[in-house]
Design a protein around this nucleic acid. Structure first.
Lengths: 173, 173
DNA sequence: CCCTAATAATTAGCTCCCTAATTATCGTCA
DNA sequence: TGACGATAATTAGGGAGCTAATTATTAGGG
């Protein structure tokens, strides 16, 4: 699968949206549907690209985010708090920590205050990994939005925020 | 994990971006980085919400997209073409088709023209499933972008397109 | 003081999608 | 025509994340 194909698959057209809506005799707004579908497709593609990006440093998106979160928290945090701030389940954190611990990028110790709790600690090696990645990582993130002016970036952030606020509409009963 | 926590985890702040950049003495633009990070986070969240959404109809995002693609193609298409238009690998299509076939939503027959090839066919039951989902599905997609005016939607599409064009920057060597 | 409900972390088992390797067939070119 | 490189589909195996169930510990109410 080459880039062109991937793009073609990932970017449905307004016409497709129109046809799909018409097929069932609905009166949905094709443009609105297109925005939703394109964003979902873009999100999925970005997710995969992100995994590829981080895998070059021997990490995954989740592991990288966990390391950064630790560093933002003076190098240590409980799995529960990590789960909350990363927006993933505790089970997922357990899995991420196991992987990171195996590579020596974090360590785990029991909490001194809570017999049930644990604390995940960023190791020197983990911090070094982040340092090694930083320049390349941020350069690539910048390149991703290179095509937008500062004003456009601000606008995009605002619009994106207003859409993501409504993600619940997809899953609400 | 509740919605609030998920949101908190999914929406890093400009300040966090600034600190992370400063930590390594880089001169990246925090706002640019924030746009990239937010979009990635939004994509991941939308992906998961999408899976929840489709699972209510006994499908996954991938299976739904495959069914729609088939319907857009007069009800039949080869796995290779499906892979291309869906932007996933052929192995993934094989997996999706196996699942859909097990539920009787598609059928598989050998290609008459190419001894190597197969053809995936949308069954009556598959078409019915799409019909059953349509009203609710499109209503939810519309709800997702409810907060944006028509002009803003057009603008968002444009900006999103210009960012997704550069996804390759993440993975390029 | 004990019993129960809540919380912390882990484990087991699931789905999604991927890459790499395998098998079969096609098509071209010497 | 026979061999070789592409292409079709599948299989095997891996990583991400999820939910549900399990185990250990904490905190409250009778």
């Amino acid at each position: 699968m080459n880039d062109e194909d991937a793009r073609a698959g990932a970017t449905p057209t307004l016409d497709q949206a129109r046809k799909q809506i018409a097929r069932y005799g609905l009166d949905a707004d094709p443009q609105a549907v297109l925005v939703a579908v394109r964003l979902m497709a873009a999100g999925a593609r970005l997710d995969r690209a992100s995994e590829v990006h981080f895998s070059r440093s021997g990490l995954s998106t989740g592991r990288y985010r966990l390391l950064v979160d630790l560093e933002d928290s003076d190098g240590e945090k409980s799995p529960s708090h990590l789960a909350r701030s990363l927006g993933v389940s505790r089970a997922t954190v357990t899995g991420l920590v196991i992987g990171l611990e195996r590579e020596g990028l974090v360590a785990r110790r029991a909490s001194t205050e809570d017999g049930r709790g644990a604390v995940v600690v960023l190791t020197a090696r983990g911090a070094q990994r982040l340092r090694d990645m930083a320049a390349d990582h941020f350069a690539r993130l910048e390149a991703l939005v290179d095509g937008l002016s500062v004003e456009e970036r601000g606008l995009f952030l605002d619009l994106l925020e207003r859409i993501t606020q409504r993600i619940g509409a997809l899953t609400a009963d």
